[in-house]
Design a protein around this nucleic acid. Structure first.
Lengths: 201, 201
DNA sequence: CCCTTGTTGAACAGTGGTGTACGAGTTACT
DNA sequence: AGTAACTCGTACACCACTGTTCAACAAGGG
């Protein structure tokens, strides 16, 4: 799914696979730095000719999509290690700890994708990660630990955007990166607390 | 400050002022719809020749900057009407009610500015509005109504990004625009509640 | 070892934008 | 009424990027 699987009978040659891998990695890096990175830029960073790149990805949009899919897949795999059982608030804390850096780093890449891909496509690509968070948040709501007067998707959106707050603050030099995770969890846990209940310390 | 005041002894002619006003308004509109709007596009929307536009704004960056400044100034003026005295939480609610739509509408314009202007310039332009919010939040922190374990700038950032959450959710068709303000204030007030204290209902 | 598959740079056409120049026409201020 | 300020369209030079073609060369697989 990461790579264009357009009707190909025999497997790709080894060097082609290497090229594709290099291109994807370079694309993720370049687009994460600058959402408007050109195809030439990416090809050069991948140590590959521009023509070669076009041999694997028909146009820039497809390349960006593949890069985003690649990054998401990687992140998704990395988060499989996180233990989401037990106390819901602690589970959420663990999830934030391991995911906020990933989210932060892919911010610019996501922006690139948004300018080139239809919103539906982007939502599809995010289906996996969203599902994981959604399950956790819903469990918290069912247990009464998280508020239910706001929709699940809203809470997920808030969590996501609070991570962006951290990125902004760090970028502006107003927040020490080491403190970021703590700020995020403190804020999210408070925001998720049901009305009338005490905010966890 | 809204208009290029580059050393001009005698006042501009009336029609020039009209042109500038039309251009600024058109620029705000166009850039709010599409952050990559071209100069031609903006000129056309303003009912003005492209050359005329260049007569008033030397380049695209200056135009974008002027548009952002214009929008901010307008918003700032509109918010002067909001009563920020009395109960801090209620004051914040009032402020959110009147400002979230403005913030939402200028999202794309801000994005345009970010791709063309240095961060410092953007922060300067926002100085006015930020100051207003900062005063209110600081007061809340001093009174013990808002938490002080997180920095003031963080809380402001959170408030800002929660508004963005609303925009995202509306855009995705998952939130009724009429409910947005309520969701935002509920979330922000909870996030601002000091640890150990009850979340307001 | 040979043939297929990949890779490469250079070159080209096309697109869509920015900013400038010019000359003729129009509109406001005094 | 006259002059300076303003506007307009066209045209131009320029640039950066996209996507394609070509012909020569390199490398993997059976």
């Amino acid at each position: 799914m990461t790579v264009p699987t357009s009707g190909r009978s025999s497997a790709r040659r080894a060097d082609a696979q290497r090229s594709i891998a290099a291109i994807l990695e370079a694309a993720v890096n370049a687009l994460s730095r600058n959402p408007d990175a050109s195809v030439s830029e990416i090809a050069k960073a991948a140590g590959v000719g521009r023509v070669t790149l076009y041999g694997h990805f028909p146009n820039r949009a497809d390349l960006v999509e593949a890069a985003l899919a690649h990054a998401i897949e990687q992140g998704h795999a990395a988060l499989d290690a996180v233990d989401l059982t037990g106390d819901t608030r602690q589970a959420l804390t663990r999830l934030i700890d391991s995911s906020w850096l990933l989210v932060n780093q892919s911010r610019s890449l996501l922006l690139a994708a948004q300018t080139v891909l239809p919103p539906s496509r982007i939502r599809d690509l995010h289906a996996g990660p969203v599902e994981r968070v959604e399950g956790l948040v819903k469990r918290g709501q069912d247990d009464g630990v998280f508020r239910s007067d706001l929709s699940t998707s809203w809470l997920i959106g808030v969590m996501h955007n609070v991570m962006h707050t951290a990125a902004d603050e760090i970028n502006a030099g107003r927040l020490d990166p080491d403190q970021a995770a703590g700020f995020i969890t403190a804020t999210v846990l408070a925001a998720f607390t049901p009305p009338g209940r005490r905010v966890p310390t």
